Simulated assay, not measured.
Amino acid sequence: MPVKAKRALAAIAQPPHKKPVLRAGDVAAMSTVKFGGVTVVMPTPTPAQLKKRIAESSQMADRLIRAIAKPGIKLSLKKTTPVFVADSENPKLVIRKLDGKRTRGEFQNGVFVAIK
């Protein structure tokens, strides 16, 4: 690899908190990426950088899939907080879970009214 190319690659591979140092005559290959109306021009990553980023992306995707594959959500609620769920026997009603009790009812003018 020519010396100028090595220096250009070394400048690109520096950590992001350091500014790349290019000497006169060095040319860093640039890539252009478009996201809708946004265009980003950046130094082209090296094959090693690409391999590392692809591995990191794959690991992140695996963690995301495991996280969203679990059904439902977990709520940390006080016992005095009512939770309303649909009544599977009657779609016009809801079930209120409050203080360990389940009560069937409906909402009238925004207020829960128990059905007897």
Rank of each mutant, 00 (worst) to 15 (best):
I73C: 12
F35V: 13
A11K: 01
S88K: 11
S88R: 05
K34F: 01
K116D: 15
R7H: 09
P2N: 15
I54D: 01
I73V: 15
Q108D: 11
P71C: 07
F112R: 06
M1G: 15
A114W: 05
V83N: 03
R104L: 11
V33N: 00
K52P: 01
A67R: 11
R96C: 14
P47K: 02
D62G: 02
L98W: 08
T32E: 14
T81I: 12
G37H: 14
L64M: 10
P20H: 03
L22K: 02
R7L: 10
R66H: 10
D87R: 00
K92P: 00
M1R: 11
R23W: 07
V38H: 12
K19V: 10
E106Q: 14
I115R: 13
H17P: 02
L64S: 12
P82V: 08
V85K: 09
A8D: 04
K79G: 02
V27A: 09
I68N: 04
R66M: 04
L64W: 07
K79S: 13
T44N: 03
E106L: 04
S88P: 03
P71S: 05
D26P: 09
Q108V: 15
K51H: 03
P43Q: 03
K116T: 12
I73H: 08
V21H: 06
I95C: 04
V3A: 13
A13V: 00
S88Q: 08
V83R: 12
P47V: 01
V113P: 05
D62A: 14
A61S: 07
R96V: 06
I12M: 11
N109D: 15
A67F: 12
K101Y: 05
K78D: 14
K70H: 09
L64K: 03
F107V: 06
I65P: 00
A24Y: 13
I95N: 06
V33W: 02
T46P: 01
Q49D: 00
L75N: 12
E106T: 06
P71D: 09
P43L: 07
V27I: 15
K101A: 13
T44M: 04
S76K: 15
F112K: 04
I95H: 00
G25M: 05
V94A: 12
A5P: 02
A24V: 11
A29P: 01
V27Q: 09
I73L: 13
A28S: 03
K116E: 15
P45Y: 07
V41H: 03
G110A: 05
K34M: 09
A67S: 14
I73D: 11
P16D: 06
P43S: 04
A8G: 02
I115A: 07
I115S: 07
F107P: 07
A13M: 04
A29C: 02
A13N: 09
S31A: 10
P43H: 06
M1V: 12
V111K: 15
L50T: 04
M1A: 14
K6R: 13
M42P: 00
I65N: 08
K4V: 07
A86L: 09
Q59D: 13
